[in-house]
């Protein structure tokens, strides 16, 4: 494990009951990188994030974060580990009973004994970084989807974490907000020197900003590489995914009996009456 490596995922398996979600995942992520994890819906991407944050325990294998095996930590150690992580949820998950300012200040007030004047300065700095200093007094219900996600981003960088995980940050955004969020992810990663993991199925937007891509399909890593390698890839799955083709290794049809059988057609194509 090189000193630059922040997260190491080793032969990670996870299953809900008998249903295997992840089957032998190996990954390595360095400090300062933006890594995309891509895959179709339901391919276990979000499960992977939960395993990294220690919300779920792996069936076998392990995740190592900054040298510590996540699922072997006790509760206190896990909580202090989580202070080094931030997570951006799909729809922001802002605390609806707190204002924008209080949302960003939440972790500072919970985990530090900073005086209120310093918290105010820090919060305004974080909000300025996402361009929403002027929205500090609004309630989450008054924000648009893109703004809510930017506030959530400001909230997740409140304690300057080493890692931020983004769960589908691009879903349901207009093209402008999309670019704004994408650029923010890149810029904050570079400025704060942290690592970002972006779970997404928005190929075009994420290829613009990431350093490395993992494709997950059926619980295994189907392909990986830099954005350029991915664009040029001739592997059928990657090609289908990147170019958004309807049919390919990921079939259009859910497995079913033949169409003829379901419609009670005889082999010659005439309906059986």
């Amino acid at each position: 494990m090189s000193p630059k490596t922040l997260i190491e995922v080793n032969d990670l398996n996870f299953s809900y009951g008998t249903r295997a979600i992840l089957k032998g995942i190996d990954m390595s992520m360095s400090r300062g990188q933006v890594i995309a994890i891509m895959g179709g819906s339901g391919s276990g991407k979000t499960t992977l994030l939960r395993l990294i944050s220690g919300t779920l325990r792996p069936t076998s294998g392990h995740v190592r974060f900054a040298g510590e095996v996540v699922h072997e930590l006790d509760r206190d150690a896990l909580f202090s580990l989580r202070r080094k992580m931030g997570m951006l949820f799909q729809f922001g998950a802002l605390f609806t009973d707190l204002s924008v300012f209080d949302n960003v200040a939440f972790q500072m007030r919970e985990h530090t004994a900073l005086p209120e004047s310093m918290i105010r300065d820090l919060v305004l700095m974080k909000l300025h970084a996402v361009g929403l200093r002027g929205a500090q007094h609004l309630m989450p219900a008054e924000l648009s989807g893109g703004m809510a996600r930017r506030v959530a981003l400001a909230r997740s960088i409140a304690l300057d974490p080493m890692l931020i995980m983004y769960d589908e940050p691009f879903t349901g955004l207009d093209p402008i907000s999309l670019t704004v969020i994408g650029n923010l992810i890149r810029r904050l990663t570079d400025v704060l020197g942290m690592t970002s993991i972006v779970v997404t199925h928005d190929v075009q937007e994420s290829l613009k900003i990431v350093d490395y891509v993992y494709f997950i399909a059926d619980g295994v890593i189907a392909a990986e590489g830099t954005p350029q390698q991915v664009r040029d890839s001739v592997a059928p799955f990657v090609h289908q995914f990147v170019h958004g083709e309807e049919d390919g290794p990921v079939p259009f049809h859910y497995p079913a009996p033949t169409y003829q059988q379901d419609l009670d057609l005889d082999p010659k194509g005439m309906p059986v009456v």
Partner: peptide, 13 residues
């Protein structure tokens, strides 16, 4: 709305 999970991930029970 995942607020509880978000809170747990911020190391707040």
């Amino acid at each position: 709305t995942e607020q509880l999970e978000a809170m747990a991930l911020m190391a707040v029970d």
